[in-house]
Design a binder for these strands. Structure first.
Length: 825
DNA sequence: GCAAGGTC
């Protein structure tokens, strides 16, 4: 008797093997695929891990020609199944020959059921028993129970997933081809449409329109400044005023009154509970705030996971399972850069982790599984690891405590509210410095007491348009609407960038993104509606429960698609023209200085882009495309005649420059250093991979180059390194600037590195201290702020009076010295 | 050259 167990991924196979064999399993290799094996009472068991779906749906080759295949035929075409993981399938086939029983042990969900069935269906299973183990956590109890209680595979559940595959492919392929062909976008410029990507793009476009159409409305706030020992602010209870007249009335009522009265005062201590553990969405959101695009953060998280530093990064769960062993993890983290934090947290008598709203049992929330140092993990990897580790700390740390006070102060009949907020115990906030807390001072007040009124001001403001989606907030919104899954949302967003539908971290739709959404909204509204996904979910449930069939739902969907296509075909010309127009606008750079034609970005068949003239071949004017940058037309002409454009590069400030790199204005601007070899200018050059380096302008005669840091703004100097004669470069980033020698081999630099290495011990303690510096940074800023307010209070008021109508009274600054003494040093 | 979903 021999058994073959199929799991969803290699990791899961390893865990199942350990649990079922009680640690006796061995890793072997079949056809270069890792397989786990052990002997039991009933014979040999093999466990193999798949790689998610091992087959992919696609149309047969005969349907590959976009211009020849009728879309109305494509709707009803039967897709074929292609094996996408041959090595695994070969190993599976080998192992199944001698197996009497095959057990599917993939994830216990719709896709898992299908993934298992895909594997089994590739095998010759005659005379073999096919079973299913259902468990939703990799614990001994769950897995033992599942294997003692094997069931039959759930074909209906697998069918429901296959239904999704078929519908997604049909709608995706038919509509992608329609939109691309009608607008003449073939090859790598095709325009895609899909059940998840199109509603997501529609969200971005809708927000963009809201912003564009936003009409700012004026409103008025009345703010007072009071003093009782220290100065504090009050806001009129009726803020914001929507009427100028009402606001003026309220302001006038305060005119000339020097004393207010405390009508209410309350002070409470408030516990602030820690943030919940990380699931994928929250991790991506927080990483996005640190500047990581979602797909980049996910890639790094996967790397950290495979290297063993963090737990599985694809999870919806926000509740740590009992079995996790929080103390054990903290013990482990004592070996990391966060020794002090881990030790501190271990001192707690009882660890009560925070929890979120969603609890699943398949994977735990994301937490660090191994200690790491800054040396082991560099750059972005470290930044993300630190985020995950600090989040973990925060979730097992005690609540923070704040003193929250509020007061109502009357100036005659006008009432003002004042709020005080002071953190008195940092708690979890100490470990999670990514959140900024702002403290507000409010002195202890006595009800009925008189308070000095320093000033009452009327401030006119305008309402602001809604914010654009960031990648983080978009992922959150997708989750809310049920669009995509924890594993695919970042990919979907990446796809929108790849298709040039949107740009920027705060997502701005491009002209073509807007045009595609508009065409779909107008003629096939269901395609941009998240409801399509909701409907599909319902249908899938019905298939799983047996009230509908796979074929039935697919036929229903074909009918809908056919109707949608009919409407689209009727408007084909209009849709094509509109999208074409949008694309032209998107590619427009400016007027050609040679023939007054239109300069536009052109993509060659090899995927390279350059700027060329619309009158080609009559006009041969071309310019290189600024690499790794987004170029937007300004409709301005440089003194040389070529158009000036906006160049947007990640990590660098937006620059406005002439499109001609040889233009004198650019030569001056691009000058970074004098070449020590030939005396010519050196400037920043971008490699094909998008990396920048310093190169000599007399290349190929002079091949002098220097490597450059990839982030930050670089400015030229005429200076040379005193030690090696190489150019000195000025670097500006995050408000700081410093000079460095461009030569990596500079003896002075090497000497410095040596010195810092020999004092490595010192630098360790330095890093330890760093965290505490960081956490107190907020408090420091506050102190300086305080000084500013008390010192320049009166100045501020006068300088603002130009813009505001102010009723200022003689400032009573009697206690300003006292408040200075109160400041911590 | 089409989608979305698993996983790497």
């Amino acid at each position: 008797m021999s058994r073959l167990i199929i799991s969803e991924k290699s990791d899961a196979a390893a865990r199942i093997a350990v649990i079922l064999s009680q640690g006796t399993s061995k890793r072997t290799s079949v056809n270069k695929v890792s397989v786990f094996q052990f002997e039991g009472e009933s014979g040999t068991t093999f466990i193999i891990g798949l790689r998610g779906h091992i087959i992919e749906l696609d149309y047969p080759e005969s349907l590959n020609n976009w211009s020849e295949v009728e879309l109305s035929d494509l709707i009803y075409a039967e897709p074929i199944k292609n094996v996408s993981a041959h090595s695994i399938v070969n190993a599976l086939k080998d192992l199944s020959i001698d197996a009497d029983e095959i057990v599917i042990a993939t994830d216990y969900d719709r896709e898992g059921e299908l993934i298992g069935m895909e594997a089994v269906r590739l095998l010759d299973t005659e005379g073999k028993e096919i079973k299913r183990a259902r468990f939703s956590a990799f614990t001994k109890l769950e897995i033992d129970t599942a294997f003692n209680d094997l069931t039959d595979p759930d074909i209906k559940l697998a069918d429901s997933a296959e239904c999704r595959q078929k519908i997604d492919l049909a709608w995706g392929a038919v509509l992608t081809r329609f939109i691309s062909m009608s607008s003449g976008q073939g090859g790598s410029n095709f325009l895609s449409v899909g059940r998840v990507q199109s509603p997501t793009l529609a969200l971005i476009v809708a927000r963009h329109k809201e912003i564009e159409e936003f009409v700012p409305q004026p409103y008025w706030n009345i703010n007072a400044r009071f003093e009782d020992g220290i100065e504090f602010k009050g806001e009129h209870v009726n803020n914001p005023f929507h009427s100028d007249v009402d606001a003026q009335k309220a302001l006038d009522a305060c005119q000339g009154i020097e004393l207010g009265k405390v009508l209410k005062y309350e002070k409470n201590e408030k516990d602030e509970y820690p943030l919940p553990p990380f699931n994928t969405t929250m991790m991506l959101m927080e990483a996005n705030k640190l500047g990581f695009p979602a797909s980049r953060a996910m890639k790094i998280a996967e790397d950290l996971y495979t290297a063993g530093y963090i737990s599985y990064p694809r999870t919806d769960n926000t509740v740590y399972p009992q079995s996790l062993g929080l103390r054990r993890i903290l013990e482990k983290l004592k070996e990391s850069e966060f020794k002090a934090e881990a030790e501190e947290l271990l001192k707690q008598e009882k660890i009560r982790p925070s929890k979120g709203k969603v609890q699943t049992t398949d994977h735990p929330p994301i937490y660090p599984t191994e200690a790491a140092t800054k040396k082991q993990l560099k750059g972005d990897k470290w930044t993300l690891y630190e985020l995950i580790t600090r989040r973990f700390f925060a979730t097992v740390a005690p609540p923070a405590k704040a003193e929250v006070s509020s007061a109502v102060i009357g100036i005659k009949n006008e009432k003002f509210t004042s709020k005080g907020y002071k953190l008195i115990f940092q708690g979890w906030k100490k470990y999670y410095p990514y959140l900024k807390t702002t403290e507000y001072d409010l002195p202890e007040l006595m009800i009925g007491a008189d308070i000095d009124v320093l000033s009452v001001e009327l401030e006119k403001k305008m309402t602001q348009p809604p914010r654009r989606y960031s990648q983080g907030s978009l992922i959150q919104e997708m989750e809310r609407l049920g669009l995509g899954t924890k594993s695919t949302r970042h990919d979907i967003i990446q796809k929108l960038y790849d298709r040039k539908y949107a740009e920027g971290n705060d997502l701005i739709p491009t002209a073509s993104g807007i045009a595609v959404v508009e065409a779909l909204n107008k003629h096939a509204h269901i395609v941009t509606d998240p409801k399509m996904t909701a409907k599909l979910e319902e249908d899938m449930d019905e298939i799983a429960h047996g009230s509908k069939t796979l074929d039935g739902v697919v036929e229903e969907s074909q009918e809908m698609l056919s109707n949608a296509l009919e409407t689209l075909e009727r408007n084909r010309d209009q849709i094509g023209t509109e999208i074409r127009k949008a694309l032209e606008a998107q590619h427009y750079i400016g007027k050609c200085p040679s023939c007054n034609g239109d300069l536009k970005t052109i993509r060659t068949k090899l995927g390279k882009t350059f700027i060329g003239c619309s009158n080609y071949p009559d006009c041969n004017q071309t310019y290189p495309m600024p690499p790794n940058a987004l170029v937007q037309p300004l409709n301005e002409e440089c003194e040389c005649g070529a158009p000036r454009v906006k160049v947007i590069r990640r990590g660098q400030p937006v620059s406005i420059s002439c499109i001609d790199p040889e233009c004198a204005t650019n030569r001056a601007k691009n000058f970074i250093a004098r070449c020590p070899n030939c005396g010519n200018d050196m400037r920043i050059i971008y490699s094909r991979a998008g990396k920048r380096f310093l190169g000599c302008t007399s290349y190929p005669d002079c091949t002098q180059t220097y490597p450059l840091p990839q982030m930050g703004q670089l400015l030229g100097t005429e200076e040379q390194c005193e030690s090696c004669g190489s150019p000195m470069i000025l670097m500006k980033t995050g408000g700081r600037s410093w000079k460095f020698c461009a030569n990596m081999e500079c003896p002075e630099k090497k000497e410095k590195a040596k010195r810092s290495k020999s004092s490595a011990k010192k630098s360790v303690t330095k890093t330890d201290k760093k965290t505490s510096v960081k956490t107190t940074a907020a408090a420091k800023t506050k102190t300086t702020k305080k000084t500013v307010t008390s010192k320049t209070a009166s100045k501020k008021t006068t300088s603002k009076t130009a813009a505001k109508k102010t009723t200022t009274k003689k400032p009573a600054v009697k206690a300003s010295t006292k408040s200075k003494e109160d400041q911590p040093k």
